[in-house]
């Protein structure tokens, strides 16, 4: 019962953040509500026993990625955005309908292909705390070593690329 309450609370927080992000016209409020949603998702991760991932989720998304978004938004000062949503009633209906179709398809796949998971209750399996993190590190640095290194290279390329892109001429950094 307590578990269920916790789940519904976290789910409501997450959904509230996501819906608010979708509907609020001011992009800064949208970013703030996405932060709420991210924290809710991190709570769900902790609820599922992935404590470490939950912490990393907050550090990476709420603490770094969305701060970047918020900072860029604040520098642009987009307070006076007149039209937040795309135009056309027909196209809007079409878009919402297609998303509904997608959602139905996802649920259908879950019911048809993963029907074994439907009645499985959350069992209170042993918490993956430190031993889990150690196991994860072992897995990461043996089986997934190649992907890990590729990601390192990717991050380097991305860092160089982002600096090169943002440094482009124009604005206050006019060069020659």
């Amino acid at each position: 019962m307590v578990e269920a309450l916790l789940f519904w609370f976290l789910a409501l927080v997450t959904l509230f953040g996501a819906v608010a992000m979708l509907l609020v016209p001011n992009p800064i409020y949208a970013a703030m509500s996405l932060v709420v949603s991210m924290i809710g998702i991190s709570g769900l991760f902790a609820f599922l026993g992935a404590d470490f991932i939950a912490g990393v989720q907050v550090i990476v998304y709420a603490g770094a990625v969305l701060v970047l978004f918020v900072m860029v938004l604040m520098l642009f000062d987009l307070k006076s955005e007149t039209q937040a949503f795309s135009k056309g009633l027909l196209s809007r209906i079409f878009k919402v309908a297609s998303v509904g179709f997608l959602l139905g398809g996802l649920i259908g796949v879950m019911v048809l292909e993963f029907s074994w998971i439907l009645p499985v209750f959350m069992q209170s399996s042993p918490q993956w705390t430190m031993t889990g993190v150690k196991k994860m590190a072992q897995l990461l640095f043996t089986e997934y070593m190649f992907i890990f290194q590729i990601l390192g290279v990717l991050l380097l390329v991305v860092a160089v690329g982002a600096v090169a892109l943002a440094r482009s001429r124009g604005g206050t950094h006019e060069r020659a």
Partner: peptide
Amino acid sequence: VGVGIVFILAAASLAVYSILMAGW
């Protein structure tokens, strides 16, 4: 908290928001 340091880092990383909210 089992993963105490990660939790503290996560909590501390939220401090930026109050500053940004105040500033903007």
